[in-house]
Design a protein around this nucleic acid. Structure first.
Lengths: 113, 113
DNA sequence: GCGTACAGCAACCAATTGGTTGCATATCCG
DNA sequence: CGGATATGCAACCAATTGGTTGCTGTACGC
C-alpha cells in the first residue's frame, strides 16, 4: 500500500464492523443488548415484525463482526454485547476525523500564508 | 418505539452511513479524500484493480450517505470528503459505548451491594 | 411422561450489490 | 479541426443479503 494511504491499512479492518452496523435491525439489536444484559433470541424477536430466524441471522452477522457473543443457558441461547470491536471502529472514525481536521488546518495555513 | 430503546431512534439514522462505510473499497476512497483535497474519478481509480465505473458507483453510494460531495470543474468531476454525517455516526458509536459503560457500572454496583 | 417453549438446520425466494462491457458525450489542447 | 481525455448511461451478470417456510431436536415444568 502506498505511503499516502498509511491510515487506510488499519481502517480497512473495520469494514466488516461497519458493514454489520449498516442495518437498522442490527443497530436496534445492538442498542438493546448494550443497554440491558444478555437476552434470548425469543426476547429479541418479540415486538418486531420479522421472524425468529431472521433475527438469528442478524445476530450471526453481528457475531461474525465480533460485536456480540452468545452463551447457552439451558435451552436458551443468550446474546450479549461485546465492546472490543466497536471501540476499534470508533477509533477508526476518530482517526478519519483527525486526518480531516489536519487537512483543513493545512489548507487554512496555506491560505493565510 | 418502546422507552427502553430510546437511544435506538437516533442510532437508526446512522445505518446508511455505516452501510456506506462497510466496504473496503469505499473506506479506501474515504481515506484518500479526507487526507488530500478533491480528487477526480480517474485519480481515484488509478492504482486499483477495478473499473472506473465501479469507482463511480462507490462514490455515488458515499454521496447518498452524505459522506462525500462532488463538484464539476471543466470535464473533471472532483470529489471531496464531507465531515458532517461521519461526525454524527461517530457520536452514535460514542453513545453506544457510554450506554455500555453505564450498564457495566450498574452491574458492578449491584455486585458490590 | 408429555406438552410447550426455545432453538437449529436447510431449502428456497426476491431484491440488492459489486462488478463488468459497450457506446455516447463533452472538454481540453496541439 | 481532430484526437485524446474524462465522464455518463444502460444493460447485463454472478454473488450476497434479508427474509421466509417447514421440519427437527432439546430442555423445562406440570
Amino acid at each position: 500500500m502506498s505511503p499516502r494511504t498509511s491510515a487506510a491499512g488499519s481502517l480497512q479492518k473495520s469494514a466488516p464492523v461497519f458493514s454489520a452496523l449498516g442495518d437498522e435491525t442490527r443497530l436496534r439489536l445492538i442498542a438493546l443488548l448494550c443497554a440491558g444484559g444478555a437476552l434470548s433470541i425469543a426476547q429479541l424477536t418479540a415486538g418486531t415484525d420479522i421472524t425468529r430466524q431472521a433475527v438469528t441471522k442478524h445476530l450471526q452477522v453481528l457475531a461474525d463482526a465480533g460485536l456480540v457473543r452468545d452463551l447457552w443457558q439451558g435451552r436458551e441461547r443468550l446474546w450479549e454485547f461485546e465492546a472490543g470491536r466497536l471501540d476499534e471502529a470508533r477509533r477508526s472514525l476518530d482517526t478519519i476525523a483527525q486526518q480531516w481536521d489536519r487537512a483543513l488546518a493545512r489548507l487554512k495555513a496555506r491560505l493565510e500564508d
